[in-house]
Design a protein around this nucleic acid. Structure first.
Lengths: 343, 343
DNA sequence: ATTTATTTTTTACGCGCGTAAAGTTTTAAT
DNA sequence: ATTAAAACTTTACGCGCGTAAAAAATAAAT
């Protein structure tokens, strides 16, 4: 590392013997200068502690090297994990990730978009809240900034969408549950905030019809992002009332399932595949915590890594193309069955 | 909201009839201009869509209105939650929070500090990794930027520290466990990454001595931040070997406890207070997920809100003072006993 | 060695705003 | 009404870098 402090690029040009415009090119893209000069610059950087002023750089550039990442809820390990993956991909391309969480609030989501706009980002990766989102303003934003939506869509906003194939994944777990026991009822939120929830509901209905079984929806009341709480509360009601046509429950997502399992445990109902178990519960997403539930949660995994990679790649492609694409690319990843103890 | 787009402050000065220097003052601090002019400006903002260029603003200011927040691991809901609280407090003061996660990596932590330095932040709130942190570089950073450490300390770096009173909180739960049954053994990581872990170990030893009980440490091997995994693996071994002097386990943190409970469940051991239970397990932190474990986890809560508020306040005080304080303020919050099903 | 293409240097201007200084207007106080 | 203080306007300069254009230097190709 360097020792002597350098004030600005002018000064660094003086001590390194490289002209300032060339240095400017180098700092914007090291590969844009001749290899020999690049080495000279890097050698100088070893002797002198200099990094260009971020604000001066971005003031004149129409587009910065910032990439915004917005997720609906950072306290949900699912999103934290996927955000982490995306961050890593972005860093690998020499861009600078800026992570923002919307805390489940549509106002915060818009606020985040506004703040990002001030950063003049090269592009944005957005996982919208879903139903609660201000679709119109998101659409406006997407027209101004290259944006890839992931996890959930918001209308047809965005130049690309990366998500999971709910038809396939829900079909997979319904198939599995039917093969290994009773057909499942579907446990979900009555008015889910996430558009994936609707897709999963329909996928469940379709899968049950395909298999010639009567579908059964259990719809929990409740708003917001406290899914475990909702799963627990309504799960308690479900196991108390005991008027289910089936003892196999497929939850719309793992967080609901975590709450449901907790409710079943409290009610003294054994969940799982053993002889003495009276109920089976499955989830969806392979949430980081689902391998530590009691019993461990059988679920369908979303391919976090693939979604993160593809989202980042799609955005980089957009940025490099430098123009709005002629068509909106949609990528859906298949889920993988994760057989654990609960079903 | 405004409709007409304004390019820069000069233009906005023209249409609003306010001089540019006054506008500059206003945008830096709305309360620094006369109430009547403030109203005129705000009225103009309603008609015209203008926000000052972030980069131009910060270029000349020696200190920006940015406040950096660094947590060791964003995928841990504990840190996600505390970060969210801090963000809210920062926003309330008119500053702009910038959240960064270190992904459990000391290199990333230093990288985050370096990146923050480029942002010329008014101050930084840092929850260091702990033992793995590059203490020297953190110390250097703290001398250059007003910094409040929270959750964990790093030597005596930072102008203030806000954390929890491990002596009190561990003493509290040890007391409780002893009053209601057997004295607990202490389940922890052998080489914990977090300095709190050492404090808790000592607090446990002290509490047991005070109560005239023989302490017993169960030290799990393992590195990194996959605490549930480590708790599960070593928990499995512990319940298999069954050579414990006690059937009450106090875990150094809730994430270890979550893994441990899962292990106990898998081993068919009932945990809790009921007649048919052969083991009690308690944790520490009141992790967001600990109310959904099976059984629900008895633990000591850390006062997230208080830690977040005090950290933010301490930093704002530092910033407003505008100088290094004569003494390093240390604030420790007491824990609250959270009695649930597991002990 | 000559030509040509590529890269670097020199020179110069501008981005949008912070901010200092001096002059003017408004407000508050007597 | 007079005076002093506070707030505002005018004018002007600078921050650190992007970037365009023309000239010079270097490298590659014949």
């Amino acid at each position: 590392m360097g020792d002597k402090k350098i004030k600005n690029m002018e000064e660094f040009a003086a001590v390194s013997g490289i002209s300032r415009p060339t240095l400017s090119k180098f700092f914007n893209d090291p590969s844009s200068v001749r290899a020999s000069t690049r080495q000279r610059i890097e050698a100088a950087l070893d002797c002198y502690d200099y990094r260009p002023n971020l604000y001066a750089i971005n003031q004149n550039r129409r587009l910065t090297k910032n990439i915004g990442i917005i997720v609906p809820y950072l306290a949900d390990p699912f999103f934290a994990e996927i955000a982490r993956n995306i961050e890593e991909h972005i860093l690998g391309t020499g861009y600078r990730p800026v992570l923002l969480g919307s805390h489940g609030s549509p106002e915060q989501e818009i606020e985040n978009l506004e703040n990002l706009r001030l950063l003049k980002p090269a592009g944005v990766l957005l996982a919208p809240l879903g139903r609660a989102s201000d679709q119109a303003r998101i659409a406006t934003f997407c027209e101004e900034v290259p944006t890839v939506l992931f996890d959930a869509s918001a209308g047809t906003s965005g130049d690309a969408f990366v998500g999971s194939n709910n038809d396939q994944s829900v079909g997979l777990i319904v198939d599995y549950l039917c093969r290994t026991g009773e057909p499942p009822a579907f446990f979900e939120m009555q008015t889910p905030t996430n558009p994936n929830a609707y897709k999963r509901r329909h996928a469940y209905l379709a899968a049950m019809e395909r298999l010639n079984h009567t579908p059964h929806l259990i719809q929990a009341a409740g708003e917001g992002w406290e899914f475990e709480e909702i799963g627990f509360r309504e799960g308690t009601r479900v196991v108390r009332d005991r008027n289910l046509p089936t003892n196999t429950i497929l939850c719309s997502n793992d967080r609901l399932a975590i709450g449901f399992l907790s409710a079943a445990y409290e009610a003294g109902i054994r969940v799982g595949l053993d002889e003495d178990c009276s109920m089976r519960v499955a989830g969806h997403d392979d949430h980081p915590f689902s391998r530590y539930t009691c019993p461990t949660l059988t679920t369908v995994s979303q391919d976090y890594e693939a979604i993160a990679r593809k989202s980042a790649e799609a955005l980089m492609a957009l940025i490099e193309a430098g123009q709005v694409p002629d068509s909106r690319e949609v990528t859906l990843f298949d889920g993988r069955l994760v057989m654990r103890g609960s079903a």
